[in-house]
Amino acid sequence: MPAMNPYLNFNGQTEEAFNFYKSVFGGEFAMVMKFKDIPKEFKGPDHEDNKIMHIALPIGGGNTLMGSDVPEQMGKVVTGTNVQISLSPASKEEADKLFNGLSAGGNVVMPMSDAFWGAYFGMFVDKFGIHWMINFDQNPR
């Protein structure tokens, strides 16, 4: 069974929000990556460099709260629809099975493929309008 974690999207407030969540939950960030840290071919406009591309805060019990700022070219997120479910399967085969099963009848946003951060990753909206991400970490730390 894959791990399931909430993934929050923001319009530029991710760092502020996650510092607040950290003050409540405690702990340390497992990862903080800004848009300026990603390869140039995936980078957007320079004015977005200091926005959060990905942040992860372990909150206990094997759960992780994750989030990012949505790049302007992807539009604005609306409160209430800015939550995704992130699944972390144990294998590439499980990732494909979950992706293919859950995305059936829905809208594929990003097909499963190798991502620059070393994972096998894909995104979709299921036929009920729920946003999902599948992230198989091929190189666990």
Results as ranks from 00 to 15, higher is better:
51 K>V: 02
40 K>T: 15
17 A>G: 06
5 N>Q: 12
17 A>Y: 10
36 K>Y: 06
101 G>M: 06
6 P>V: 08
7 Y>V: 05
117 W>H: 08
48 E>S: 11
11 N>W: 09
69 D>I: 07
123 M>I: 12
61 G>L: 04
6 P>G: 04
108 V>W: 10
17 A>L: 05
41 E>D: 15
120 Y>P: 01
48 E>A: 11
51 K>W: 07
103 S>A: 14
58 P>S: 10
125 V>D: 02
10 F>H: 07
39 P>G: 06
15 E>G: 02
47 H>A: 13
112 M>T: 09
4 M>A: 15
69 D>P: 08
115 A>Y: 13
102 L>Y: 12
29 F>W: 06
4 M>C: 11
80 G>R: 02
10 F>E: 07
41 E>F: 13
49 D>Q: 01
32 V>L: 11
118 G>S: 03
14 T>F: 02
61 G>H: 11
105 G>V: 10
67 G>V: 05
100 N>G: 09
93 E>F: 10
91 S>T: 15
25 F>Q: 05
107 N>R: 15
33 M>G: 01
11 N>I: 15
118 G>A: 00
7 Y>P: 02
15 E>Y: 10
94 E>G: 03
123 M>R: 06
102 L>Q: 01
40 K>E: 14
59 I>V: 15
66 M>C: 05
109 V>A: 07
42 F>D: 00
101 G>T: 14
85 I>N: 01
125 V>A: 00
104 A>S: 14
97 K>T: 15
32 V>K: 14
66 M>L: 11
62 G>L: 08
63 N>K: 11
116 F>M: 08
79 T>L: 14
55 I>W: 01
104 A>D: 15
1 M>E: 06
2 P>H: 11
94 E>T: 09
22 K>H: 08
108 V>L: 03
29 F>G: 02
78 V>C: 01
97 K>R: 15
56 A>D: 13
7 Y>C: 07
100 N>D: 14
93 E>R: 12
108 V>E: 03
71 P>S: 06
74 M>R: 11
91 S>R: 09
52 I>W: 03
85 I>M: 13
123 M>V: 10
14 T>V: 03
8 L>H: 10
28 E>P: 00
15 E>H: 12
44 G>A: 11
49 D>P: 12
5 N>K: 09
96 D>V: 12
111 P>H: 05
14 T>S: 09
75 G>Y: 06
58 P>Q: 10
101 G>C: 10
106 G>K: 06
98 L>P: 02
18 F>K: 04
64 T>R: 04
33 M>D: 00
104 A>T: 15
15 E>L: 14
50 N>Y: 01
92 K>S: 06
53 M>H: 05
51 K>P: 01
89 P>G: 10
90 A>P: 01
31 M>V: 13
74 M>P: 00
36 K>R: 15
126 D>S: 05
20 F>C: 00
